[in-house]
Design a protein around this nucleic acid. Structure first.
Length: 450
RNA sequence: UCCUCGGUAGCUCAAUUGGCAGAGCGAUCGGCUGUUAACCGAUUGGUUACAGGUUCAAGUCCUGUCCGAGGAGCCA
């Protein structure tokens, strides 16, 4: 198979730079519609979608013949002249190509995903093809932008990326939510967090972050859960809760503003309401857990709907469920920090407030529009004996915390950190319903393929 | 693990009280010079998830199994 090219190859995202020039694009037929002697082709090349127009009288008989035979997802080299035309759809759109030549690399028979409706199961079974569809393409481009802007902000603000192991030797907490693997006849587990290693790394590097996949064997079947998801976990030495929240709001704002700047075409394709994102700038509102409970109880008393009443029913000491998070986030038009959760619902390493041991120095960040928790963070206990007591109180195997406790013997300092879930953040920024569309190949309780 | 709903053509779905298995889309063929999920005409399409039962007759009713969806629980 030859790929003879006689004109300049361009990427569709740069099409506006080539008006009145004859160019070649390397891509796939996304859609085609014919009107007798006039055919419209939507060509994808990975960077965008361009409308290409074939007039019978402007091309050879052979090329028009080829045009009529083109099928969805056939791979082609397409040559023509770029022109501005406001009628032209596509991404970026507004430009189209008057075709002069088409070279088919492979002609496709019966591509399974048509431009019509399909069910979720059908599409997920064909995820390797579904990612070519414009909506999925846009979501995954935004995901990449989010990941890029995360590294951008952290790298520019003095954080060092430091990887943490995926294979870990012992359960930090109960084994029920860990994936077990056979590690040379010993049991090992896939990581749930890199945090403990981050806490070692800050003593070497000051400010660090881990960025990678994490695994939860929870049998959760909701629109917010995956069994494999990506998390970025920054950790900062000499940092208290107040300083941590300032870092978080700048960090999250940078991510959102980067997407608005670099992915406006993708957000438009998804039909995302940009006004809900453009005001995401520091400062974010902060309320205490106590106050959140008061607000939920008030809301419950104000509502007449008995179903809603029981959904948001809550007592001090309970952790929030999805309906509570949704109700709370709808009270604000920015992400909101909920601080000082009850000690009993949070992790063993979070320090308690000096005069109120029933609450701890923790904060979650809830995304607006009902999207809920995207960040969990806290100060970490830095006193050796306090930490030992808490490990014992939680009935955790103290011997597995040897090296972790070492960190409290050799130059322990106050420190804090947080973890941001990538897929939940993508859901929020893209404004989509279900987290499964935010991962290229989502892993869920009943799905490990493709 | 629990609750609710579902599984019928390649896809999305319909099928009245238990009474001939249907439509749209796709695909194929033909027509059309501005389409945006084009449109018009024709052709093509079935182990009704699986196993058993009731009945003159089951997509429909009963029992069991499998698979999926939404939600709950769970979720540092």
């Amino acid at each position: 198979m030859t790929c003879e090219v006689t004109f300049m190859i361009i990427r569709i995202e740069n099409i506006a730079d080539y008006v009145d020039q004859t160019i070649t694009m390397q891509g796939w037929i996304y859609a085609k519609t014919g009107k007798g002697k006039l055919h419209f082709i939507q060509l994808r090349d990975g960077t965008g979608i361009a409308q290409c127009v074939v007039f019978q009288k402007e091309v050879s008989e052979e090329v028009f013949d080829v045009t009529q035979q083109l099928t969805q997802e056939s791979s082609v080299l397409l040559t023509g002249t770029v022109r501005k035309d406001e009628r032209a759809p596509g991404v970026p759109g507004g430009y189209e190509v008057g075709v002069t030549d088409i070279q088919v690399i492979q002609s496709v028979n019966e591509y399974p995903i048509t431009p019509k409706e399909h069910g979720v199961e059908f599409l997920l079974d064909r995820r390797h093809l579904w990612i070519r569809s414009s909506r999925q393409w846009a979501i995954l481009r935004i995901r990449a932008c989010i990941m890029r802007s995360i590294r951008e902000w952290l790298d520019e603000n003095g954080f060092l990326e430091m990887t943490t192991p995926v294979i870990t030797p012992a359960a930090v907490e109960g084994t029920s939510t860990l994936f077990e693997i056979d590690y040379f006849d010993k049991t090992a587990y896939l990581c749930q967090t890199g945090q403990l290693y981050n806490e070692a790394n800050i003593a070497a590097f000051g400010k660090v972050y881990a960025f990678g996949p994490t695994f939860r064997a929870e049998k959760s079947k909701t629109r917010r859960h995956l069994t494999e998801f990506w998390m970025v976990e920054p950790e900062i030495a000499y940092c208290d809760l107040g300083q941590l929240l300032e870092i978080e709001e700048q960090f999250v704002s940078h991510i959102v503003q980067s997407c608005l700047k670099k992915c406006s075409a993708e957000l438009a394709l998804l039909g995302r309401d940009i006004s809900m994102l453009s005001n995401i700038k520091p400062p974010f509102p902060r309320i205490t857990y106590d106050n959140a409970i008061e607000r939920l109880i008030d809301l419950k008393n104000e509502t007449d709907d008995p179903e809603q009443k029981s959904l948001i029913d809550i007592e001090w000491g309970d952790d929030f469920g999805a309906p509570h998070e949704t109700a709370l986030t709808q009270m604000f038009d920015k992400p909101v920090f909920i601080t000082h959760y009850p000690t009993q619902v949070k992790a063993f390493y979070m320090p308690v407030l000096e005069n109120r041991p029933e609450v701890c120095c923790s904060a979650d960040l809830l995304a607006p529009e009902g999207y809920g928790e995207i960040i969990g963070g806290s100060e970490r206990i830095h006193d050796h004996d306090t930490l030992v007591n808490r490990i014992k109180e939680h009935n955790l195997p103290i011997e597995t915390y040897d090296w972790y406790l070492d960190l409290r013997k050799y130059g322990s300092v106050p420190h804090s950190g947080f973890g941001l879930g990538i897929e939940r953040t993508v859901s929020w920024i893209c404004g989509i319903e279900h987290i499964r569309e935010t991962s290229p190949y989502p892993r869920m309780i009943n799905r490990d393929n493709p």
